[in-house]
Each structure stands twice: as structure tokens, then as C-alpha cells.
Nucleic acid binder design. Sequence first.
DNA 1: GTCGATGTTATCAA
DNA 2: TTTGATAACATCGA
Length: 269
Amino acid sequence: MPELPEVETIRSDLDRHLRGKMIADFDVCDRRLLSIPQEARWKSIVPGRSIAGFRRRGKYLIADLSGGWRIIWHLRMTGQLVMGTPAPEARYRLRIQFDDAPALCFYDQRRFGEVWLLAADQGWPSRAPLGPDAVDELARDYFVRLVKQRTTRIQALLLDQRLIAGVGNIYAQEALFKASIRPNRPARRVTVQEANRLYDALSETLQTAIARRGSTSRNYRDAYGQAGMAQLIHQVYRKGGLPCPRCGTTLRQTRVGGRGTVFCPDCQR
DNA sequence: GTCGATGTTATCAA
DNA sequence: TTTGATAACATCGA
């Protein structure tokens, strides 16, 4: 589910409501998420700390706590972070409670999502370093250079978090359509002009999606539990077999690097 | 009932 | 370096 625009929407919602609040307590409903010893460690560190703010790096969401501690989430496919009291039948994985703010509940149907509690000097959850954030840090010349030097297919390049952080399968497809580039093109065969067009398309696609509070095609919800609006302007994502919005040719569904993708065989070369 | 696909990513073999 | 397969898991639709 959540790519950069979705995580950014959640981040800004949580930052608005929970910045400066003190964590009263938390509870865990899923041993797969936190083992008994991990929970004990959390219990000794987390309650009583206040939240300095929420940040985002790629698809990771970071809560900065007092004392330099950080709680970091990766929502993977179906993770949700929603403020408020969970419905009685709702199966949340982790709930963080505040005395003077709504509880923050982590839901995750497929249970791929992860959470970490790290001290200031404990580095980062993933071993492989993240590339520059697609919205906050991606320089045009770095992007064009990357495209020209990689042999992998252009869509796989966009999805590789070590190269660029935050782009997922929805926005990669949308940006490639906007830039009229076929997803399976070897990156280095993309011209400098096209790479520049793709840079603009990617940036515009992500910014627009943030303004529309993310894409809800299935599970995604913002921190209020509401759906996003960016799915209403998708041009190709999950639209295989429908006419191309630009030229009317039937959109084709295929696979690139193990991921499903849709493109217009006429507009995208 | 079965099969394949779904927004992610780490890991391993080739 | 890159690719493809696999594994985490639950649900939906054909």
C-alpha cells in the first residue's frame, strides 16, 4: 500500500496531532510484531517519553522521542497508522496511548509491516542504505546520471530503494506513462531528454498525490482512517485492458522485474 | 475450491 | 550487477 505520498500524508496528520504529546503507555496484540523480551525493552523505555515530531525517509515513518529515541515504522503492503479508539472487533497490532491525545493504532492485515525502537546512536533498521528521498532529496543531475549508467529496466530502477527512496509500483507506472517511456526499457537506453522528462513527471506525480492525500486502491487509509483521493486521477495503474486516456489504444498489462505493470503500447516507447 | 494477483523488501542462487 | 524465485501473509476476484 503505502508509498511516499501515503506515508507523507500520515506523517503530516500525526505530526499535527501528536507532536509534543507524552506517551502514557502502549500494548501489543501481535507477538510476531514484538516478542516478549522486545516488549519488555519497550516498556522500560517508551512510556513517559514525549514525541518531538514525525519525520519520513522514503517509505519509513519516524517518531522522534525525547532523549533521542526513535520509533520507526515500515508499513509494507497493508500497514495503517490510525488515530482513535479501535473498534471492538478490530485487530490492531500495536496501540500507543496518550493521556491528552487519541491513541495511535497500528493495523496490518497482511502483517508484513515492521516497527523498531532505536536509540539515537543505533543507526537504521535496514542494512542497505536508502537512496535520496524522491521528494526531499532527489537532484536532477543525480537522477539523469543514474539512468544513463544503469542497465536494469527503467521501472526496476525507479523501484530500487537503494537508488531512490519512496517510489512504489503505483507512482512508477504513472510517472512512466506521463513521461511516455515504456517500463521495460533498459535504463541506459533512455535518452537524457527522456530522463529529464521522467524526473519532472516523477516529481509532479508525487507532489500531486501528496496534495490529494495518497491513493486508496485497496487498504490505504490516512491517520484519520479516511481514504485518499489520488486514485481518482490514475492514468494507467490497474487499468490494463482499458483505453489509453491519451490516445485510446488498449493499455497492456505485463511484468517487469517481477512486478505487474501497465503501459500504453502506442504512447510509451 | 483453486489459482493468481495485490501497494514491499530481504535474501539467495545463477 | 542484475535477474528471478522465494518467503513473509490475508484477501479478493476470476
